[in-house]
Design a protein around this nucleic acid. Structure first.
Length: 928
RNA sequence: GCUCAGAUGGUGGAACUGGUAGACACGCAGGACUUAAAAUCCUGUGACCUUAAAAGUCGUGCGGGUUCGAUUCCCGCUCUGAGUACCA
């Protein structure tokens, strides 16, 4: 029979489902291997051709690892809480759970027909109570924990209470809020439970904090920075304002150093690691207190160049700094208030684009240089950010270009501090070279000497100390939305308390509408008779999108467990994810939060690995490839009913229109289908070239509105899943972004037919030979065995596809139908094109389905050994001819053989070669 | 501005450790089969020059360098894409 992909694929997909072929074993003598895909948000649009790219790669890898004898865990699930379902619910009144379930069904159908080897018995959905029970449980664990800097790990809150009982909080080294006041054990003993709770909240790893958020009144929710565009919400275009709100936060900053150090232990793409390093933003420096001249107070400054403190000629506060109002003198009040007002008016965008203009205002107050006692002016300026460091900066114009510009603009002094600084009249020189001048007790020292000298001096005077600063802020953990995990907290007298563990999961209540209440409370405020013990109000915000995805890889290990997020046995068997594939857009969000929760769970003894994802691969984005037609415009700007082919469009004035890529083949427009697609052009005139209408091409993102979405269902219908899988890989390196172009898919389809034909005779009857394989056949086979295993292990899937084509071409040329060779080839190809291989495997006489757990053939190098090599002979690096020379000849013998050749003599033109390079089995180069 | 990634035929791409640049595939051209078309098969296909054939010159974004030999290593530049945004 000819290659009937539809029947074959249906048959084997049914077989795998029925026999649970890909169910991972809970325990096994085999080594474990955990292959994970970033699970999708099930959107209403379904999958387009770009989504499965990473899944195909991970599936090939999983199938390959099974053939290599591993117990493979390869699960899939859905990140099913999210804003789009909620938006849709607001518009239609349909419960998000209903639309989500329907969307998941579509995803499942689409995934199934691609032939993935997922273990569906472990499927997770973050919006199911059985799953989010454990997300809530982790939240409770965080609430009941604090970060002990002495042990450098999170601990149960009871160990903190013990410390308070024994010695108060003075000696406690913990990550906590900045405003904790110190107390004695006797104070602690006399506190009310409420007072104790207030203090403990300042230490808990999840805590309430007043934060400035992007509040969108129309949506009734808080938006992330990237959901806000120029002061309006990206979705809907509603105005967004800055608002202070009490919000749940996660003390991720406690883990900053460990998150940074851990990057050195994992095999991730360097750009992702770099992004995380920037996000964490560690800077080593010192914190310095500048006494205020007018009162007893201090202004604290963070600096990475404490060695330049003798060059300080002014101090700058952020306009939002809390001391600005008290330190502004009456004479300067107008200037300062005017400047603050002006800063507020500037949009985020203005402040960003306008980095060259120098602006600021003098407060009228002075501070004292803590070392020299010199009086320097105190300014405010918007180049200092309230949110970073202490919101105050010491101005050293000779060493910092921004300070230099500021000083020049406002006529403040520029003091040279290093003898190696040059040209400071023109610009700042940030050098660390040379010796200090004009610098008090560090004059004459080098940079390396000065830093510790100043730090110890400051510390002795209690005016500062060495400090490490991180840019990373604690993560806000509440959203004013409906479709997310409820936070398992209730309020009593304004203080938050956890519900009891046995009361989990706290179910998402039903509401009449998915909108905020009239009083501006989140949608959960609409739930009727929803209170804790019928009297206390629950927390009304829900968890953010990243909550459910920050631990889901553990749930897959033991997805059905009702008593624990995953059993201890499962966690210690599967350990961590060996290979994680997903998009780089999650570089600083999901991947950072997941590492944080993983480290926390390890501290608390629930998991065993410090890092969750050993190896990470980012698949590139598949871009859309749009097709355009060109409508002729008359001189007066009126659109005509004439369309001109791409090659002739420069002879006319035209506008481009997007046309559905599915009615274009190799840029040739199907005019009849086009007339149906755009009925207004039913009578249009087409100006053709060579009898065809040729469309223009543009690469942009894949989107319905650009008519460039290619649906995998259509390709599977026409060519089958095996062709789709191989073609997606054939497109290019996995990690590279590339436009989708269906044009080449025929080549892959032809390859599979050609492969099928190797097993069949002219009449399409199955026909293989039991003969001993020839040397040539074995060579082809072992070449591909080696090539594919090398390629898969370095994630170079595209090159394997070419090699398969070469192998099948070679066997076709050899007219080979050797059973032994073909059976091995089936196993090698099985990870890429599993359906056709299962079918052929069975036709070869093997038990149905046993291919998935067959043995990957062993590569035997001897079959590739050649006794001759066709040496390229080059002269001065230019190849002129090839000579077949025995590989048994040693280098001098090769030289002799080459020089004796008639053609070589011709190129030498009688001259003696100056030099001869012979690389055995590679090349001969003659220098003349 | 800074950081990172990339640039190879008409197109997607290959060349893994410095060793025959353009594998494989698409497209295109020509041919076979066919009443015809589709499908299939065969041949050719980087550019230039020349040709009956052969040979030759150039060629991996641009300019230099190292080397017997560079798509590959080094220096400088251009362009494209991604991330980031006054970080003290």
């Amino acid at each position: 029979m000819d290659y009937q992909f539809k029947e074959i694929e249906k048959k084997w997909q049914g077989f795998w489902a029925q026999n649970q072929t890909f169910k991972a074993e809970a325990t096994s003598d085999k080594p474990k291997f955990y292959v994970l895909d970033m699970f999708p948000y099930p959107s209403g649009a379904g999958l387009h051709v770009g989504h499965p790219l990473g899944y195909i790669a991970s599936d090939i890898f999983s199938r390959y690892k099974r053939l290599k004898g591993f117990n493979v865990l390869h699960p899939m699930g859905y990140d099913s809480f999210g804003l789009p379902a909620e938006q849709y619910a607001i518009q239609t009144g349909q419960h998000p759970a209903v639309t989500t379930t329907a969307n998941i069904a579509t995803y499942r159908r689409q995934l199934d027909q691609i032939g993935f080897s997922f273990d569906w018995s472990r499927e997770v959905r973050t919006s199911e109570p059985g799953y989010y029970k454990w997300t809530q449980w982790i939240f409770m664990l965080l609430f009941n924990s604090w970060y002990n800097l002495e042990t450098d790990r999170a601990e149960d809150i009871t160990t903190l209470i013990e410390k308070f009982n024994a010695a108060g909080n003075a000696d406690v080294k913990a990550v906590c809020d900045e405003d904790v006041v110190s107390f004695m054990p006797s104070d602690w003993a006399t506190m009310t439970p409420e007072e104790k709770q207030i203090i403990l909240l300042k230490y808990r790893l999840t805590y309430l904090r007043e934060s400035t958020v992007n509040w969108c009144a129309a949506l009734g929710t808080v938006l992330a920075n990237d959901e806000v565009k120029e002061g309006y919400s990206e979705r809907g275009g509603h105005p967004v304002e800055q608002k202070k709100m009490m919000q749940w936060s996660m003390r991720i900053s406690a883990y900053a150093e460990r998150l940074l150090q851990g990057l050195n232990t994992i095999d991730w793409p360097e750009p992702v690691k770099e992004m995380q390093r920037n996000w964490i933003g560690k800077s080593v420096g010192a914190s310095v207190k500048f006494p205020i001249a007018e009162n007893e107070g201090f202004i604290e400054v963070f600096t990475t160049r404490v060695d330049t403190i003798f060059g300080v000629s002014f101090l700058v506060l952020a306009p939002e700094h809390e001391l600005v109002s008290t330190l502004t003198t009456a004479a300067q009040a107008d200037a300062v208030n005017g400047y603050i007002a002006q800063t507020k008016k500037k949009s985020e965008l203005d402040r960003m684009s306008d980095t060259k203009t120098v602006s600021g205002a003098f407060t009228g107050s002075y501070v004292l240089n803590p070392i020299t006692g010199e009086k320097v002016q105190l300014w405010i300026a918007d180049y200092v950010l309230a949110g970073y460091g202490t919101g105050a900066v010491m101005g050293v114009p000779s060493g910092d270009q921004r300070d230099w510009l500021f000083a020049k603009h406002f006529g403040l002094p520029v003091v040279q501090i290093l003898d190696s600084q040059t040209n400071i009249a023109e610009q700042a020189d940030p050098t660390k070279e040379g010796k200090y001048i004009n610098s008090g007790f560090i004059t004459g020292m080098t940079y390396a000497e000065a830093i510790p000298a100043i730090n110890s001096w400051l510390e002795a005077q209690n005016l500062g100390k060495a400090k490490i600063n991180y840019r990373m802020r604690d993560a806000i953990f509440g959203r004013q939305r409906y479709w997310g995990e409820p936070i398992p907290v209730y309020f009593k007298d304004g203080l938050p308390y956890l519900i009891k563990e046995e009361e989990l999961p706290l179910l998402l209540p039903e509401v009449d509408k998915y909108l905020p209440t009239e009083s501006g409370e989140p949608p959960l405020g609409r739930a009727e008779s929803w209170s804790y013990e019928d009297q206390y109000t629950y927390e009304l915000s829900t968890m953010p999108g990243w909550a459910g995805s920050s631990w889901y890889w553990y749930r897959y290990m033991d997805a059905m467990n009702p008593d624990r997020f995953a059993s201890e046995e499962a966690v210690s068997y599967w350990k961590d994810v060996d290979l994680y594939i997903g998009g780089s857009e999650h570089a600083t969000g999901h991947l950072l939060y997941s590492r944080f929760w993983n480290k926390f769970l390890k501290d608390m003894g629930y998991v065993n690995e410090e890092e969750p994802f050993k190896k990470l691969i980012n698949q590139g984005m598949i871009l859309g490839r749009s097709n355009l037609v060109y409508r002729v415009i008359e001189a007066d700007g009126k659109a005509t009913n004439t369309l001109v082919s791409h090659g002739l469009k420069n002879q006319y004035k035209t506008t481009a229109l997007h046309v559905d890529v599915n009615i274009v083949d190799n840029e040739i427009l199907d005019i009849e289908k086009f007339k149906l697609f755009r009925p207004e052009f039913a009578d249009a005139e087409f100006i053709l070239e060579n009898g065809h209408y040729i469309c223009g091409v543009e690469v942009e993102k894949m989107s319905k509105s650009l008519y460039n979405v290619v649906n995998p269902d259509v390709l599977i219908e026409n060519y089958g899943a095996d062709t789709l899988r191989m073609y997606e890989m054939f497109l290019g390196p996995l990690e590279q972004s590339k436009p989708w172009n269906t044009n080449g898919i025929e080549g892959v389809f032809k390859f599979l037919r050609k492969f099928w034909r190797l097993f069949h005779n002219e009449a399409w009857e199955f026909n293989v030979s039991d003969a001993e394989p020839s040397k040539a056949e074995l060579k082809t086979l072992h070449k591909i065995i080696k090539k594919v295993q090398d390629d898969i292990e370095r994630f170079s899937f595209n090159t394997s596809v070419s090699s398969f084509m070469i192998a099948v071409n070679e066997l076709t040329d050899l007219k080979s139908n050797n059973k032994q060779v073909l059976e091995n080839l089936v196993v090698v190809l099985a990870s890429y094109a599993p359906h056709i291989c299962e079918e052929l495997w069975q036709l070869l006489g093997n038990p149905a389905g046993s291919l998935s757990y067959a043995k990957y053939p062993v590569f035997v190098p001897e079959y590739l050994v050649e006794d001759e090599f066709s040496y390229p002979i080059s002269f001065n690096g230019k190849t002129r001819l090839n000579l077949n020379i025995s590989l048994s000849l040693d280098i001098p013998a090769v030289e002799q053989y080459v020089l004796a050749d008639e053609q070589v003599q011709k190129y030498l033109e009688g001259k003696a070669p100056k030099k001869m390079i012979v690389v055995k089995g590679r090349i001969v180069n003659i220098v003349i």
